[in-house]
Measured scan of single mutants.
Amino acid sequence: MQIFVKTLTGKTITLEVEPSDTIENVKAKIQDKEGIPPDQQRLIFAGKQLEDGRTLSDYNIQKDSTLHLVLR
């Protein structure tokens, strides 16, 4: 499925993911596309910070959802 990741600069990254993918996995995909190390990434969805060990389906993230990427 496709999800979107919006950065603070207003750029939107499109990712191909599975509901069973972990947040860690998603961060690795963002690193592949953007070169941002996962340890600098914070992903936010519906006002919640997403934890590495959980999956997209744990957070009820569905296709065409938009996550927000904050760098630390």
Rank of each mutant, 00 (worst) to 15 (best):
H68W: 01
G35W: 04
D64L: 04
T66N: 03
A46R: 02
K6P: 02
D39E: 08
Y59T: 03
Q41N: 09
T12V: 05
G10I: 14
K11A: 13
K11E: 12
P38H: 06
S65E: 12
I61L: 08
T66S: 12
P37W: 10
I44E: 14
D64P: 01
S57G: 08
H68Q: 09
P38S: 11
I44F: 06
L71P: 03
D58N: 06
R42V: 12
K33V: 11
Q62P: 11
L71V: 13
T55I: 04
V70F: 07
I61R: 00
I30L: 11
I23L: 08
K27A: 13
V5D: 00
I30S: 01
Q49G: 13
V70W: 10
G10H: 03
R72H: 13
R42P: 02
I36A: 08
G53K: 14
E16G: 09
D64I: 02
L56V: 12
L8M: 07
A28T: 11
G35S: 11
L69N: 01
P19Q: 07
K48I: 14
K29A: 05
V17Q: 11
K27D: 00
A28K: 11
S20E: 01
L50F: 03
K11S: 14
Q40M: 03
V5M: 04
E16N: 11
K6V: 14
P38I: 13
L56P: 01
Q40T: 10
H68N: 15
T7N: 06
A28W: 09
D21A: 09
V17P: 02
G53P: 08
M1T: 14
S20N: 09
G53N: 10
L67Q: 01
L71A: 11
L8R: 10
K27H: 12
K6Y: 14
D21S: 05
D39T: 13
D58F: 15
V5Y: 06
I30Y: 02
Q62L: 10
A46K: 02
L43R: 00
T9G: 08
T22N: 03
D32H: 06
S57V: 13
I44T: 15
K29P: 00
E51H: 05
A28R: 12
I36D: 06
A46I: 05
I23G: 04
Q40W: 14
T12Q: 07
I44Q: 06
Q49A: 06
V26W: 00
S65P: 02
L67N: 01
P19V: 09
D21Q: 08
K6L: 10
D21K: 02
I61Q: 01
Q40F: 07
T7M: 10
G35R: 03
S20A: 15
K6T: 06
T66V: 06
G47V: 10
N60T: 13
K6D: 14
R42W: 15
I13W: 02
L50E: 00
D52S: 04
Q49V: 03
I61E: 00
G35V: 03
G53H: 12
K29G: 11
L43V: 05
V5R: 00
Q2Y: 05
Q41H: 14
V26D: 00
E16W: 07
D64F: 13
T9Q: 04
P37K: 03
E24F: 06
H68S: 12
L56S: 01
D32S: 10
E34P: 02
I3H: 00
Y59M: 14
L69A: 14
L15V: 12
F4I: 08
I61N: 00
I36Q: 09
R54S: 11
L67P: 01
T12L: 15
I36G: 05
G10R: 02
L15Q: 01
E16L: 09
D39H: 04
K6W: 11
D21L: 07
M1N: 11
A46N: 08
R54D: 08
K11W: 09
E51L: 03
I30Q: 00
R72N: 14
K11V: 15
V70G: 04
T55D: 07
R42F: 14
K33W: 14
D32T: 07
D39P: 10
D32R: 11
H68G: 09
T22F: 07
S20F: 05
I23R: 01
E16A: 10
A28G: 05
G10S: 11
G47S: 10
S57E: 10
T12I: 09
R54M: 12
I13F: 06
F45A: 11
E24Y: 13
K27I: 13
N60M: 07
Q2S: 09
V17N: 03
K63A: 04
Q40G: 11
E51W: 02
T7H: 14
D39V: 06
R42Y: 14
L56D: 00
H68D: 15
V26Q: 00
D32Y: 05
L56R: 00
T22E: 05
I30K: 00
P38N: 15
E18P: 12
I3K: 00
T7E: 08
H68T: 13
T14A: 04
F4W: 07
Q49E: 09
Q31N: 10
Q2T: 14
K33N: 08
R54T: 12
G10V: 08
Q62G: 13
D58Y: 03
D58T: 10
D32I: 08
S65I: 01
K63E: 11
K6Q: 13
D32V: 06
T66P: 15
N60G: 06
L15N: 00
Q31L: 07
V26R: 00
L67A: 04
I13V: 09
R54G: 10
E24T: 09
K27T: 15
F4A: 12
L50V: 05
K29R: 06
S65T: 04
L8E: 15
Q41I: 10
L50M: 08
Q31W: 10
K63M: 10
S57M: 02
D64T: 02
P19I: 13
T12D: 03
L56E: 00
P19K: 04
E34S: 04
Q40E: 12
T9N: 15
D64H: 07
